[in-house]
C-alpha cells in the first residue's frame, strides 16, 4: 500500500474532521430550508444538499478521488441504470392519465385521500388525534 500511503499524505485526521464539520453545516442548511416555506427552496436545500453531502462522503471518506477511474464509472453506471428504470416505469406509475388510458383506481385514491386529509383536525395529528389514514379506512 505504499502508493496509497503517498496519496493519502494530505488526508490527516484534521482534514477528515474538517469535512465532517462541513457535512454538519450542510445538514443545518437542509433543516433550515423548509423553514423559509418556499417549495422550490425546500426541494433545493433538501435534495441539492443531499447530492453535495453524498459527493463529499464519496470523495473524501470513500476516497473515490484516489480510486481507479473505472470504479467511479461502475458506481455511476449502477446509478444510471436506476434512472433508466425510473424513466421506463414512471410513465405508468407516476402519471394517472395518458394517451388512451386512465388509471381510475389511482385517481380515486388521490381524491379519497385528499378528502380525508382535508377533514383532519388542523395541526392535530401530532397531538394524538386520529391519523388521516385511520379515518380514511373507516369510510370503506
Amino acid at each position: 500500500m505504499s502508493e496509497a500511503a503517498a496519496d493519502h499524505g494530505h488526508h490527516t485526521p484534521a482534514f477528515y474532521v474538517k469535512i465532517w464539520v462541513i457535512l454538519l453545516m450542510l445538514l443545518g442548511v437542509s433543516l433550515a430550508g423548509p423553514e423559509i416555506g418556499i417549495q422550490w427552496v425546500t426541494l433545493l436545500t433538501a435534495f441539492g444538499i443531499a447530492v453535495v453531502k453524498a459527493y463529499l462522503v464519496a470523495k473524501n471518506f470513500m476516497h473515490l478521488n484516489l480510486e481507479r477511474r473505472y470504479v467511479v464509472y461502475l458506481l455511476l453506471t449502477a446509478v444510471a441504470f436506476m434512472f433508466l428504470f425510473y424513466a421506463g416505469t414512471s410513465p405508468d406509475i407516476m402519471n394517472h392519465v395518458g394517451r388512451n388510458w386512465t388509471n381510475v383506481a389511482a385517481q380515486a385514491e388521490v381524491e379519497r385521500a385528499t378528502e380525508a386529509l382535508n377533514h383532519e383536525v388542523p395541526h392535530g395529528a401530532d397531538h394524538g388525534a386520529e391519523p388521516a389514514s385511520a379515518e380514511g379506512a373507516e369510510h370503506h
Partner: peptide, 8 residues
C-alpha cells in the same frame, strides 16, 4: 414515483 403521483 408514488410520491410524485400522489399529492396526498
Amino acid at each position: 414515483m408514488h410520491r410524485l403521483g400522489h399529492p396526498e
